[in-house]
Computed example of a mutant assay.
Amino acid sequence: MPPAAIDLTRIRAVTLDLDDTLWPIWPTITRAEASLLQWLVAHAPSTAALYSNTEALRAIRNQMVALRPDLKHDLSALRRESIRLALTQAGDDAALAEPAFEVFFAERQRVELFVDAHSTLAFLSQRYPVVAVSNGNADVHRVGIGHYFKASISAREFGVAKPDPRIFHAAASAVGVQPHEVLHVGDDATLDAQAAINAGMQAVWLNSTGQDWPHAQPPHATVATLTELCRMLEGLAAPASQPASPRPHAL
């Protein structure tokens, strides 16, 4: 099935995924886990000895997904409870889970944006209200990009995660538009692009690694970079009688 062309005239708002769309997530998580381990060495040495590397900390966090499926939408709670479990297993004070998590969470907000993220956010926010829609626990204000967004909807705060259409509908409602008036942009074929289509939105898949599209219904567009997204939207907006500029505005 060929992709449906983006209808620029319908777009009254843009929703954006965060992790792996505006920055790479795993370098951030690795640094945050290293900071957590360093804190445990100083404040909970038995736990640091039992979970002596970041891989072990990640493994018990992943174990918590099975132990607490009720928290699957809340990555902060999953991480906090995994730290609490590690402390308990090692015989350290379980109350240390709260300050330990805060160390992890502070470092988790220190993301390294993709080189074209700021210019893309500026380009989009000058044209549309922009809403963050994320299953993760990044805070756009602590990250330093909150001024680009009219709203931010997280699975943790909303109570359900992508691909549930309700979180997409909440994002549309946050800026007073209907789902069919929204263009969603994200890196995950299923949780972002396909889910947005199922929610009645137009969708752009940010496919930076050249993956094959895994679903029957294709996204409205696929781009490899955020810069390509801006060029595409600017090209669509250019008058038919004039060639689109080869360079995106404000990039």
Rank of each mutant, 00 (worst) to 15 (best):
V160I: 13
R166V: 00
H141C: 09
D188L: 05
D116F: 03
V115K: 14
A189R: 04
P163E: 04
P179E: 04
D164C: 08
H169N: 13
A138Y: 00
A138C: 04
R110G: 04
V143N: 10
A138L: 09
A122C: 12
R156L: 01
S154T: 15
F114K: 06
G146V: 14
K150M: 11
E181Q: 15
A122N: 13
L183S: 01
A138M: 01
H147D: 15
L113R: 03
I145M: 15
V160L: 11
R142Q: 13
H141G: 04
N135M: 03
P129Q: 08
V177E: 03
S125N: 13
S119V: 07
A172I: 08
A171D: 01
V131D: 04
E157C: 08
I145L: 15
P179A: 10
A174K: 07
E181R: 07
P129Y: 09
A151I: 08
L124F: 10
G136M: 05
D187K: 07
I167G: 01
F158P: 09
A151Y: 02
G186W: 01
G146P: 07
A171F: 02
R142E: 14
L183G: 01
E112K: 13
E112F: 02
V131S: 04
A138S: 12
A171P: 05
F158W: 12
V130W: 12
V160W: 05
V111E: 06
Y128P: 01
A171K: 11
A172G: 09
P129C: 13
F158S: 05
